[in-house]
Design a protein around this nucleic acid. Sequence first.
RNA 1: GCGGACAUGGCGGAAUUGGCAGACGCGCCAGACUUAGAAUCUGGUUCUCACGAGUGGGGGUUCAAGUCCCCCUGUCCGCACCA
Length: 803
Amino acid sequence: MSTKYNYKEIEKKWRAIWEKNPVNPTNTNKPKYYCLDMFPYPSGNGLHVGHWRGYVLSDVVSRYKLLQGYEILHPMGWDAFGLPAENYAIKTGTHPSVSTENSIRNIKRQVNEIAAIYDWDREVNTTDPSYYKWTQWIFIQMFKNGLAYEKEMPLNWCPNCKCVLANEEATNGVCDRCGSQVTKKNLRQWMLRITHYAERLLNDLQKLDWPEKVKKMQSDWIGKSYGAEIDFPVDGTDKAIKVYTTRPDTLYGATFMVLAPEHEMVKEITTPEYKEQMDKYIYDASTKSNVSRMTDKEKTGVFTGAYGINPLNGAKTPIWVSDYVLADYGTGAIMCVPAHDDRDFEFAKKFDLPIIQVISKDGKEDEELTEAYTEPGIMINSGEFNGMKSEEAKAKVPDYMEEKGFGKKTINYKLRDWVFSRQRYWGEPIPLIHCDKCGIVPVPEEDLPVILPNVESYKPTDTGESPLAAIDEWVNTTCPCCGGPAKRETNTMPQWAGSSWYFLRYCDNHNDKELTGKEALKKWAPVDMYVGGIEHAVLHLLYARFYTKFLYDIGVVDFDEPFTRLFNQGMITKDGAKMSKNKGNVVSPDEMVENYGCDSLRMYELFIGPPELDSEWDDNGIDGVYRYLNKVWKFVDEYKDKIIEPTKEIEQAKHKMIYEITTRLEALTLNTVISGFMEFTNKLVAAAKNAGGIDKDSLETLAILLCPFAPHIAEEIWQILGHDESVFRQTWPKYDEEKLKEDTVNVAVQINGKVKANIDVAADADKDTVLSAAKEALGSKLSGTIIKEIYVPGRICNIVVKP
RNA sequence: GCGGACAUGGCGGAAUUGGCAGACGCGCCAGACUUAGAAUCUGGUUCUCACGAGUGGGGGUUCAAGUCCCCCUGUCCGCACCA
């Protein structure tokens, strides 16, 4: 009697069983495998099928590793601080902790629909005081180690979020979160000295099994360059201006200098004649938005009236001020060589400044340069360096400078320190106290966490102060140092704070003595496989690496990279666009689970395309995998009572399936794993049909192979085949190389590279045998003189003829 | 502007890494079952009546190129005055 594939009943049944008996056993003394998803922000909108993609992928990997004999850590949690909850609070008056809790409840229900083997006992929530106690603790350690400092400087300010932004959050001069144009605002803020780690963050990329793209994005962001710092004395004073250049070889060609408008010496050296003009220029530069400062390529600038002296040849070089020079890179001042730099060339042309060529292709000076010559070449107009290759001079000039004492070789990074304070409510309070007598004092560790107080109004202010500043009874406290009156720091941390170390907390989330116990760390960390979107390529992933290196340095952890392997899954689009509520193109997984079942949706999420690429959702596509699972069900149902000794064909089909599924799964080409299931199940079905039955092992193998992908149906089949214990207690099947071998192979016969016939030959036939069979098959098609005969065993046979 | 990735049927995509292009799926067509439809099953489906042609376009290496090399075009992504 045959039964229908009733996914609803099957999935409900196994969900209940797994709840009581989790498939992932703990404390097994098996080797560990830590497979982690980037934890989600619990948004009120819930999940769409795009969110499922990464979660299914990591669950498949986790279950596969489980069957390979590992003990698995596969946790889930919530990155729950941040602006959306706060903005929602402002709009509706619901406290962020309430709306966050509601969102978590809904998302957790949806996440559970995936049927991943998450260990909910290890759940973390960044807004839980028992969690952010340790976020604050890490900050205090950074403060004590001189890595957290306060500084007033022009910062990226988002006028919409009313909040400062880190450099990483303001790429292209636009706020990462809301898309508003970022302006500059002079503010006193807490900074983290991530630049101290620049070299290690760059070098250690080598040891990571990460996508090359992400590694390149990080190394570009860190932006290491080799160059020199050179002192240009200011004419008529005892002062000098330090410039940074990557082209010391062009020093003889420096004909003017430019300072950033924010450079500290601008006011000092500007002569009275140019003062008024200069003040206006500096004011304009300070109010310009980042976007216009970047997109207005037209050079602007003002002469200071002062001159610098080229220390190499004593030439007088006029000192200008222009906003194309950045205040916070290098020394904020440059020497300008218009002959060999595009930007300097443009500036020199606009303001009619002299251009001296010091490098040329052939050692002869060009008649007139129409653009900057930026290639390497032969040194000219450069005194003792004339005739030298410019690449050589790049090393020789700095040596000379160091000898004479007016400059030295240096290294520069584009990476800036991390602006760490935010003027918003829904974040971790920075655990510091300001005391008039003692200065800035960290909150004693035994007083942590500093609980985020309730406020009446969450609204951010325009003053650059956090809403916390308005709560007098919270702000006013006593100094832990002298006991006198003192005030709390009212800024909060950025959302990245909690996510920079959460992967450590999963290892030991109930520990109230340490952020994570040593033993738990030793057992689980670091993360073996980290799965998430590419959008965190520099932000979260750079910050988490920085935190890990710091914790390594102070002895909290004994590894200095958090994520050994990284996988970025692609987006799922609908109508060519990212799914969003606004566009109305959201596909809900709830509906798909209802209509097709969890197993079908899991398989379709993988089948949709190469997992690392974006893929377009096709409403009909899921029918294909649904039909496949039905086919599997019918196959087992039909043959479970027709057990026979396996034929050779069955054996071969089984081993071929194990081989193909395993190698494709190892390569994480999961779309081809699913197509492989379809293809090789068909072969197995055909073999069973030919034999009039099948062996039990083949059916069991199919169930085991299928279980990481479609766990419910696999468990059900496993039970139908007569087992009491879960299919997840089995080990991953092995294939036998010998059984994969075919007796005969089909060989294409070509004449001059075109296929003319096909022949079946013994797999071990030698070249001569195959060639004579090939010629026989070709018959009269073969004419002319044979020049060459090629036989690639088991594949192709090509006969090259001349007519 | 600089850097990177990619380009294969109507569609999503495969191709053992230089060896029979189009696996697998969607869609479509035909047939079976059905009063009929839905569902399901079976077969077909790159183009062309055919000879042949064919992996964005052009050239090259090779017995053999989607795959390697050079040039061009297009799409997407990253960075963006970093001296």
